[in-house]
Design a protein around this nucleic acid. Structure first.
Lengths: 193, 193
DNA sequence: CACTATACGGACCGATAGTCCGTATACGCA
DNA sequence: TGCGTATACGGACTATCGGTCCGTATAGTG
């Protein structure tokens, strides 16, 4: 049963053009000042094409992020320690957060746009749930079930893109952010008396 | 030198009408689905009146919040321990966060609207700076200067309105949130080895 | 009562996400 | 190669919203 038709060649070409143009625009225009019309124009396609392909603004941004996040997820799921299973839970949690922070620092405008999209809340984003679940699991393993859920949310909140943006904009260096995050994570991970 | 003219009676009446209508609308419509036109219509005034009085959307929301936050600030600046100066820094930090969380829980739609307003980032809001400075000071006192700035940001990020909203929407009780926040704050406050 | 500073209101504007539909074209098939 | 149709294209169009403008109304004053 092949009810799935192959994607038409021009459609594939346009999809790539749109992704490339959007990626470039988000990278060069610092903040989220990128409209769908801008992207369509830069890609040399009509607006209808954008929306048919990606559904809406969030869909487009998610497609961009997904492409960049492949390496990250691979590392986490099967890659090198201490990110991968096998290492102690606390080290894995630490490495997970550091990796996430690194990714957000490396893709600031895009991640900012992603978290601002979707009518405000980043918690509705499809990607948040898995991150939270994994981190909460590690926390439960490292320090007990109690409050693990909330603490995972709190740790993820500490790497929200607009906070990162605010910190870098006010002069905090990436190294300082990493240091602060590590301190926070260690404090949370150390078992409570 | 009295170059300040007294506010005209009709202007005062309208200001109250607008604040009352906005308060009601934010309270009954759960999320931030309240447009300026809605508020103007509900208050029975023209849109121009809204904007002349409050400048813009953020100004109006801040006026609403300010009115509700008077009691809170009074408590913190001169009120009862352990919120007021005099108590140990760690207890004050704990109480500060709990008070902030309580306030946000009690004014969910409004605080959500406030943090979403202002072109996205809550870090540009006038109120954030003082909160952060105060908390960072307490953290520095309780556990040392190192990372105090970032940790204050992180603690405040844990009570961001959209996270509160997400938690309550997914079934977490206010008591659980308070419990989690307290655990987080205690972990952060305990001096690092 | 008249005069002026102040306020009113809603038509208007610009931007932006998202829709619609007539037109063009890629591709399987004969 | 030529044909028919499913698929895709594009950009005009709509809806919504924050914010502005300016002609009109009125509160306060002497």
């Amino acid at each position: 049963m092949p009810p799935v038709r192959k994607e038409r060649a021009d459609a594939a070409r346009n999809r790539e053009a749109v992704l490339a143009a959007a990626d470039r625009l988000f990278a060069e225009r610092g903040d989220c000042e990128v409209s769908m019309d801008d992207i369509a124009a830069a890609a040399g396609v009509g607006k209808g094409t954008l929306f048919r392909r990606f559904g809406d603004r969030v869909g487009l941004i998610q497609a961009l992020v997904a492409r960049r996040a492949e390496a990250l997820r691979a590392d986490i799921e099967a890659g090198s320690t201490p990110l991968a299973p096998g290492a102690p839970a606390d080290e894995r949690a630490l490495a997970l957060l550091a990796a996430l922070l690194g990714f957000k620092l490396a893709n600031r405008p895009l991640m900012l746009a992603l978290e601002n999209a979707g009518s405000g809340s980043p918690y509705l984003s499809e990607t948040y749930g898995p991150w939270h679940a994994q981190l909460a699991g590690l926390l439960a393993e490292a320090r007990g079930e109690r409050d693990a859920d909330f603490l995972a949310h709190a740790l993820l909140a500490a790497v929200r893109s607009d906070l990162i943006e605010h910190l870098t904009a006010t002069g905090t260096s990436p190294a300082d952010i990493h240091s602060g995050l590590a301190a926070l994570a260690r404090a949370v991970l150390s078992p409570t008396p």
